[in-house]
Nucleic acid binder design. Structure first.
Lengths: 186, 186
DNA sequence: TCCAATCTTGGACGATCGTCCAAAAAGCGC
DNA sequence: GCGCTTTTTGGACGATCGTCCAAGATTGGA
């Protein structure tokens, strides 16, 4: 299972053959269909379980004391960028899995993005309350906005690997996102 | 060539076998290696040539007379959304090709995104001058911003197919983008 | 200790892949 | 019409894929 993710990260979904996976896991070939009924079922399981927990978790990186909310947002997105740059193949694999799933099981991918949205909601509320703020727009709307931004930042950076440009983008969107947070009305 | 794109759009990169492509093109099997030296070379050619020209071109859709610049930006992004919704498999294929290329020929994908940026610059300048405006930030920065937004909108919609949410996002980012345009100083 | 039930394994099978190549088809000057 | 060059073709080959399964290893009760 973990081995399958490593294989996909290294060589893409097409490299995730039954033999490559069991070899990575140091298991005999027969063990594959002893655990999973088929290769497609394995990929389904992988898509279902490998939610990018780190992606959202790492965004709780805290800036220095007395920072503006905009700086807090920048710090969070910068922390995600650090994660992306440190392990690009992981994010690459996640997207490949999502695109693969869009063809075989579109509903599954839709549900998986629902998980992302909920994780995004949690992060956004933590960031806001940290600064005594609350979000003006409904949380589902804000969470989807965050996912759109992160997806865009990720795919574009994976393509051009232009780290300074990605940093610049983060600093330019942060005010827009932060502008949707208002002081909590007591 | 066109046949290869159709096959990829229908079944993904993994479905782009030599036999499937020549069958789609109604050509004999031998013709494949008579035209292309290998399958990888074909995919390289496809990535190189299939710039999403329509993507950028369609964004020149004009709103009614006397519209604010923000409304012009919304109309442009809405027009792209129409294109995406009308032919999702095309955009899906483009992303699959890009991700495939990131593993085999990263530099090629980077150059291809350079083409996107230049096309984005052209669109942005056209949109701005149409309203007697100019962009405050350098054009490469603005163009990359546009690509990040479009990539994010696309991947997220492909995953959740939530059209109203995508429309809402377009209306919420438009002010942020439009805010970088200022009246041309005579 | 021995047998039966269960779990585990690696080899085998059919399908399909990319690639090659000998032969057929098609031009073409004479 | 004929011989020669060039283009075009589909069958063949080796590799690799997902999947299956008979045989070997393991376990636990009598």
């Amino acid at each position: 299972m973990r081995a399958a993710i490593r294989v996909i990260a290294r060589g893409g979904v097409s490299a995730a053959t039954t033999r490559a996976i069991v070899s990575e896991a140091k298991m005999p070939l027969g063990a594959f269909h002893y655990v999973f009924t088929s290769r497609d079922e394995l990929l389904s399981q992988v898509i279902r379980t490998v939610t990018d927990d780190e992606r959202m978790a790492v965004e709780l990186a805290l800036p220095g004391e007395g920072a503006t909310f905009e700086q807090v947002v920048v710090a969070a997105l910068d922390a995600y960028l650090d994660l992306l740059i440190a392990d690009p193949e992981r994010e690459l694999a996640l997207f490949e899995l999502a695109f693969y799933g869009m063809r075989s099981e579109p509903d599954l991918v839709g549900r998986q993005y629902g998980v992302y949205y909920r994780e995004g909601e949690a992060i956004l509320t933590q960031l806001a309350t940290m600064c005594g703020l609350t979000w003006r727009e409904p949380m589902p709307v804000m969470a989807r906005r965050l996912v759109v931004v992160i997806d865009g930042v990720t795919t574009t950076w994976l393509a051009d690997r232009d780290t300074p440009a990605a940093r610049e983008f983060v600093r330019s969107v942060a005010p827009w996102i932060a502008a949707s947070a208002v002081p909590v009305t007591a």
